[in-house]
Design a protein around this nucleic acid. Structure first.
Lengths: 257, 257
DNA sequence: GCGTCCGATTGACTCAGGTCAAGCCGGCCG
DNA sequence: CGGCCGGCTTGACCTGAGTCAATCGGACGC
C-alpha cells in the first residue's frame, strides 16, 4: 500500500478501491475533526456520511507525495493533522510551493473535479494524517447532492481568494513584509499574540513566500531584531500581531490602468 | 443607470432589478456568444435560459468599474466583448491587476457565491460589452439546478488553476519570459504564429505580469530585437509561438524540500 | 493642420533580493 | 560520547528589475 522508491521521495501508491483495509479506520476523533472542517460543515451530515463510507485515513511520514503534478487525481485529500504543500514544477524542473494547507483543509486539487492532470503535486511537509476520499465517489456525489455541490463551490471560492491574496502579496509587498504577514496569519484569530509553529522546513516556507531560504532567514532575523517576534527552533513567538503588520517598510509602485 | 463620478473613474450604478430597460437587449448575436462560453456550455440550455431571463447586456466604456473591491457583488458578469481586469488594492492603496479576462469569460468574483465582499475590483480595460446576471438569481439557480452548480464548480476550478499558473510564473520566471508566455497564450491555440492584440493599456498588462510598465516595455523591445515578435501600435506579431517559449534566458532557483 | 496632453519608451542609476560560499547547530548513528 | 550530515544561518557580492527623469508620439480638440 505504501511503497518507497529507493532513489526518490516517498511515494504513496494505492489500488483503485482499498476501503477498509486501512491502517487507521475512521475513529471518533477523526469524525470530529472532519465535522469541524468548513467544507463538511457546509455539505451537511448526509453528504459527509456518504463520502466517508468509501474513504479511509492514513498516517504518512513527511516527504510523502500524495499526488503528483501532471497525473490524474484518484483521491481527494482532507488533512486531519500535519501540513501539505502544493508543489509546482516548471518545464525546466525548477519548483516552488504554491500553497501550504493545514489541518481541516480539503484540497481536491480541482483536477479531481475536472478529470484533468493535477497542476501541482501534494507533498507532506511534516508527518501527517490524511483522509483519502476516492475521486469517483466524490464526483458521483457531487452530481446528485446539491448541498455537497454547493459546499464545493464555496470551498473553491475560498481557495481562489487565497490565491488572489498571494498574487497581490507577491506583486506588491517586499519580502520582509510577506514573512510578517505569513506569521501573523498563523496567530490564532482573536489572540493578539502567541507562539506560531513553523514545523515545515524553511525551504518550503521560503518557496511558499516566493523567496530563497536565505532571504527568509534574514527577514526573520530582521523581525526579531525589531522586537516583533522571538525565534526558537521550529517556532516563533509573536509579541504583537498588529505590530507585525505595521507599515514601516517601503511599499512598491502604484500606477495601474 | 450609468453615472460619472466627477473626480474618479466611471462607476457603474444600477438599481436592484433593472431588467429589460437595458440599452442592449439579448440579441441573437449575444445568445450565440454566450452559448459558446465554456461555462454555459457545461450548464446546459435549461439553466442558461433561466439565468438569461433576468439578465441584460450593456455596452460600457473603458475605465468603467463594474464591481468594487470590498463591496458585495450584486451581479455576475459575462464578458461578451472587450477586456476586464481584476484590480486589487492593498491596504496602502497600491494596486495591481490580478487577472485579465477576455470575451466569453464569466467572472462571478466568487464573492457573489460566498456573499462576501469582492477581493478585487473589475475594471474594463477597453470598451466592452458585458452581460449582467443578478447575483440573487444565480445563487438561487445554483441551489436548485445541479448542472449549473456543476458548471460553476468547473469554472472555479479552471480559474483556480489560472491563478496557480500565475503564482508559478511570478515565483520562477524572470520578467522577459513572463512577457513571452503572456504573448504566446494569446496566439490562437493551434496556429503557431499570428498577430496578438494588445488593446489594454500597457500599464494594466505590466501590472498583470507583476512588473512596471518600463520593464514591460524593455522586455517587449528585447523580444523584438531577438526577432521573436514584431511590434506595432496596440499589437504584436508573433513570428513563432514555440520560439517565444524557448528557454534561452536563465531561470531561478531549484531547492524545494 | 497644429498644439496639447497623456501614455509609452528610453536612458542612467539604485537597491532588494538572489547567488555563492563558509560556518554553525542539532539530530542521529556507530 | 564523538563525529558525521543535512538544514539553517551569516556574510560578501552581483544583478534583475525598480525608480526617476527626460523624450517621444499618437489621439484629440480647436
Amino acid at each position: 500500500m505504501i511503497q518507497v522508491k529507493e532513489d526518490g521521495p516517498l511515494r504513496l501508491i494505492v489500488g483503485p478501491h482499498p476501503r477498509l483495509d486501512s491502517p487507521m479506520p475512521n475513529s471518533p476523533l477523526n469524525i470530529d475533526l472532519i465535522r469541524r472542517s468548513p467544507f463538511f460543515a457546509a455539505a451537511g451530515e448526509a453528504a459527509m456520511e456518504g463520502l466517508l463510507r468509501s474513504s479511509f485515513a492514513q498516517r504518512l511520514p513527511r516527504g510523502t507525495v500524495v499526488f503528483e503534478q501532471h497525473e490524474r487525481a484518484d483521491f481527494l485529500h482532507l488533512l486531519l493533522e500535519g501540513s501539505v504543500g502544493l508543489r509546482a514544477e516548471d518545464e525546466a524542473g525548477h519548483a516552488t510551493i504554491v500553497e501550504i494547507f493545514g489541518p481541516g483543509e480539503l484540497f481536491l486539487a480541482p483536477a479531481a473535479v475536472l478529470r484533468m492532470p493535477c497542476s501541482a503535486s501534494g507533498v507532506l511537509l511534516v508527518d501527517s494524517r490524511v483522509l483519502m476520499i476516492p475521486a469517483d465517489a466524490f464526483r458521483e456525489a457531487i452530481g446528485t447532492d446539491l448541498a455537497l455541490s454547493r459546499a464545493t463551490v464555496e470551498l473553491l471560492s475560498r481557495h481562489w481568494r487565497l490565491m488572489v491574496d498571494q498574487v497581490v502579496d507577491l506583486k506588491l509587498r517586499p519580502a520582509e513584509r510577506r514573512v510578517a504577514r505569513f506569521l501573523a496569519r498563523r496567530v490564532p484569530e482573536e489572540a493578539g499574540a502567541g507562539p506560531v509553529g513553523l514545523a515545515e522546513p524553511r525551504t518550503a516556507i521560503a518557496a511558499r513566500l516566493g523567496m530563497t531560504p536565505e532571504t527568509l532567514s534574514r527577514a526573520l532575523a530582521a523581525l526579531e531584531a525589531r522586537g516583533a517576534i522571538r525565534l526558537s527552533a521550529r517556532r516563533a513567538d509573536v509579541a504583537d500581531r498588529a505590530a507585525l503588520l505595521e507599515a514601516d517598510t517601503f511599499p512598491k509602485r502604484v500606477r495601474v490602468r
